[in-house]
Nucleic acid binder design. Structure first.
Lengths: 221, 221
DNA sequence: AAATTATTGTGACCATGCTCATTTTTTCTC
DNA sequence: GAGAAAAAATGAGCATGGTCACAATAATTT
């Protein structure tokens, strides 16, 4: 490793380390990029030579942490029969690894991971979401025998629904003050069951004729 | 009505009207509060005498629109037997009224309505959400016979799940370029069925023993 | 109608995320 | 090692949402 490359890596690590400490102490929004720069002993602009944005800095850390969780989770999954069980194991593993950042994860997710966030605005966030959804996809396919619904539309609708439910869990967890976040576990249990259920089609209890509803206001003449 | 009161109302209306026009043309983020002030013929600070924030300005309009939708929807609901059907009618009515603002609704919802948003940060947003959830609650209770799940925990878990699913629909709709947003209708159909299904408990297909999972990293000694 | 009080408008000013021309440091070439 | 080229650091500066002390205007009192 060449000298400057090493120095660069050190600086990068210093930025990350100091940023995390500040986020933990004051939250994400109340930590300014100038705070981070001062703590890391660099100029205000330097941080942006390493990370595209303040969010990208935080998401980089989350991505690291979740990557570790991802390798760990593969073993656990083999023991899970049902889709709901597997999802439960996958998500709890991720949350456990995110635990040190629990108090400010929401501030970052709000503007990067939400379905309202513009795709492409934060590459790190997009990557985290995609990896997560791919894992879910594999996890479901490996247990496809439990599903009566065709899975080929996973990308189109199911992934939207899944992702929003997952975000609900993360948001709940990030504010959960119950001992050991047991309320989150209950919610997650319910959520994973709900999602697994949604992969079975038996839901024609009323006719699908409402499709002729109009969402856009008809043009006046 | 006193003279100044009238003038004040006029100014307020002018702010709203010009803001909407600008939002429509350039989006929410790309419209600055200075743009709005200039268009409305007031000083930059004046806008904040009328609205707490840029988001609050937009949410005020959404609240108005949804209030109108709310009165309209009560009639429609009487025709709906099932919970899913009723939800479908309720949500489509709201979306139809929001249609003129479709392109920038997401930019506002992202930071005010998401489960990550800090409650109390935007009073208008909180009110809209609460009203929406109350309507859903009534709508469900009036059809409680269809539910095997006890409804008394609605506030605790169900409302979180419902709200996140609803946001998924809104986000999807706000970017839906299919003719007449028919893709949104399909998604909404699926979503409302899914949610209605979740009000029935028959989901004990695997033991709930995973509750002993640990979310927080155990302290090292 | 003058004086006083209450309401509303104003724009200079602040904090902050981020940019970018310039400067400093490092690496490469001879 | 001197000079050139490439990489990295710098911090003044920009745009923007929002604040606030003060100014202007309207309403009330005498």
């Amino acid at each position: 490793m060449r000298v400057t490359a090493q120095k660069k890596a050190e600086t990068r690590e210093r930025i990350v380390a100091e940023a995390l400490q500040l986020f933990e102490k004051k939250g994400f929004a109340d930590t300014t990029t100038r705070d981070i720069a001062r703590a890391a002993g660099i100029a205000t602009g330097t941080m942006f030579n390493y990370f595209d944005s303040k969010e990208a800095l935080a998401m980089t850390v989350f991505a690291d942490v979740l990557k570790t969780a991802g390798t760990e989770v593969q073993q656990r999954l083999t023991g899970c029969e049902s889709i709901a069980e597997a999802l439960f194991a996958f998500i709890t593993t991720g949350l456990r690894h995110l635990d040190p950042h629990r108090r400010y994860v929401g501030e970052v997710y709000e503007n990067t991971m939400t379905p309202f966030a513009i795709p492409g605005a934060c590459a790190e966030a997009d990557a985290v979401r995609q990896t997560h959804l791919e894992t879910v996809w594999q996890l479901v396919v490996a247990r496809a025998g439990q599903c009566t619904r065709a899975l080929d539309d996973f990308e189109i609708l199911t992934s939207h629904l899944y992702w929003s439910l997952y975000l609900a869990v993360v948001a709940f967890w990030s504010r959960d003050d119950s001992p050991n976040q047991e309320d989150t576990l209950a919610m997650l249990d319910r959520t994973t069951r709900l999602f697994a259920q949604s992969l079975n089609v038996e839901d024609t209890d009323y006719p699908p004729n409402q499709q002729d509803a109009e969402l856009s206001t008809p043009e006046m003449e």
